[in-house]
Design a protein around this nucleic acid. Structure first.
Length: 412
RNA sequence: GCCGUGGUGGUGUAGCUUGGCAGCAUGUGGGACUGUGGAUCCCCUGGCCCGGGUUCAAAUCCCGGCCACGGCCCCA
């Protein structure tokens, strides 16, 4: 038997409805922030991703040689593609350029809870302005994305990489070791870093300081002041303080992140609990341009898992009308009703199996129809329809035209 | 890639230790029921993840693979 490939999923109608609703939330919210959707190809030249993230990530890619001998990779994320697309055809667009995207990405990793080989990402890019207000706008949208889908147990950690850079520089640590150090900090191996670079307790102490203290200690407090400015600006957006945390140990291990960075964790997830990450970076190097971009990517599947764990998945819609023709002589009239209702965008279905009224009602019940419409000889006779409210069980017979008018007024 | 646990009708499970007729529940379809659902009763449908080995005999024991789950590595 052929089964689905490792790390992939089939999404059933209930799941799809849930996902579409949450997706719609994110689209509407981003649109309200002035962002507009773009879509890039599902596959790119492998080089795009290796240039962005280093040669080692080839191991994590789905890639192959196509019939023309090109080295092609399924996108492991959108950021590189978006910047590529920007460079290739959107450079002349006015700044700030605000873009969002949504779609599947692919990584060849070992699947586990909340991690699939085909997974969905929602994300944004804010291209052009390199200002504290742009950083704040970026963070505010990220926060609201999580908030808007009604997730409640999450933590947004914010940092400015330049603060740690400054600290390391002032402690005479070669900036080339930055990546190694940040990587270890990310893994919370603080003691190893302190030991390896002879920092004693300085690093740990520093990370535990309030921003004002950091500012006093550093010879150049500008990075701290910048972060404070961003935080002040965030107050304009009405973020709930309880979700917000300044954590200078929040690092995103990659070279192209430069300034303010942030991550969001969902507390109720297991090992894979980060649902969103982003910040300020410059990918222009790949294309020989200098362009600032601030964005974030949100793990759609993980976010839904977190929502599910909180019991906050949106409710599924009901269907409207299920028509039950009683006897073939009522077919013509039944289909007339069906056509009229459907033309008014009422979600209407009709029994296709010739089932008895009892079984047909059972079907309507299991499929969450609001109303069952019984249409037999009597109804055909006087151009009426018998409507059964599937919740209350109440039932009445009214003229067909009256019913259609009523439904039209109520639902449209 | 590494460590661990597991895989029996569509779904959930019993059976596995001690090899010997694969059982139950639920769901789907049909009937009781061609004018009234969420109920009841009946019938049908449908399964031992795959491959190899041991054995008279394997769902059961052994080996390999695949897949899922928990964790590690990684996490753009």
């Amino acid at each position: 038997m052929i089964e689905r490939p490792r790390g992939t999923r089939d999404l059933d109608p209930d799941e799809m409805e849930t996902r579409r609703k949450i997706e719609q939330n994110l689209r509407d919210l981003s649109t309200s922030f002035g962002y507009r959707e773009i879509l890039t190809p599902t596959f790119e030249h492998t080089e795009l991703f290796t240039k962005k993230s280093g040669p080692d990530i080839v191991n994590e890619l789905y890639h192959f040689e196509d019939k023309g001998g090109r080295d092609i990779a399924l996108r492991p994320e959108f950021t590189a593609s978006v910047i590529r697309a920007y460079n290739e055809g959107m450079r002349e667009l006015p700044k700030p350029l605000k873009l969002f995207y949504f779609g599947p990405s692919f990584r060849y990793e070992r699947p586990q809870s909340g991690r699939y080989r085909e997974f969905w990402q929602f994300g944004t890019e804010l291209i052009g302005p390199d200002t504290a207000r742009a950083d704040a706008e970026n963070i505010a949208l990220a926060y609201n994305c999580v908030k808007n889908i009604r997730l409640d147990e999450f933590e947004l950690r914010v940092s400015n990489l330049k603060i740690l850079d400054q600290f390391l520089q002032e402690n005479d640590i070669d900036i080339e070791k930055r990546q190694d150090i940040y990587h270890k900090i990310d893994k919370e191996e603080l003691e190893e870093v302190s030991e390896e670079y002879s920092l004693g307790s300085k690093l740990l102490d520093f990370l535990n300081m309030e921003l004002d203290e950091m500012s006093n200690i550093l010879k150049d407090p500008e990075p701290v002041e910048y972060l404070k400015e961003v935080l002040d600006l965030l107050e304009y957006y009405g973020l709930d303080e309880k979700h917000l945390k300044v954590d200078i140990g929040t690092v995103r291990g990659l070279d192209y992140y430069k300034g303010v960075v942030f991550e969001i964790d969902a507390d109720n997830l297991g090992a894979e609990k980060q649902i969103l990450g982003g910040g300020d970076y410059n990918l222009g190097d790949i294309f020989g341009i200098d362009i600032s971009s601030k964005g974030f990517a949100m793990g759609f599947d993980r976010s839904i898992l977190a929502l599910e764990n909180e019991g906050k998945l949106p409710e599924l819609d009901e269907m409207d009308c299920y028509i039950i023709p009683i006897g073939e002589e009522s077919f013509e009239y039944s289909y007339e009703i069906l056509r009229e209702l459907r033309s008014k965008n009422v979600i209407t279905d009709i029994d296709l199996m010739g089932r008895g009224v009892g079984k047909a009602l059972g079907y309507a019940d299991k499929n969450d129809f609001k109303y069952a419409l019984l249409v037999g000889g009597n109804e055909v006779e006087d151009k009426s329809v018998t409507i059964k409210d599937m919740h209350s069980g109440d039932q009445k017979t009214i003229g067909k035209d009256e019913f259609v008018r009523e439904v039209d007024e109520k639902w449209n």
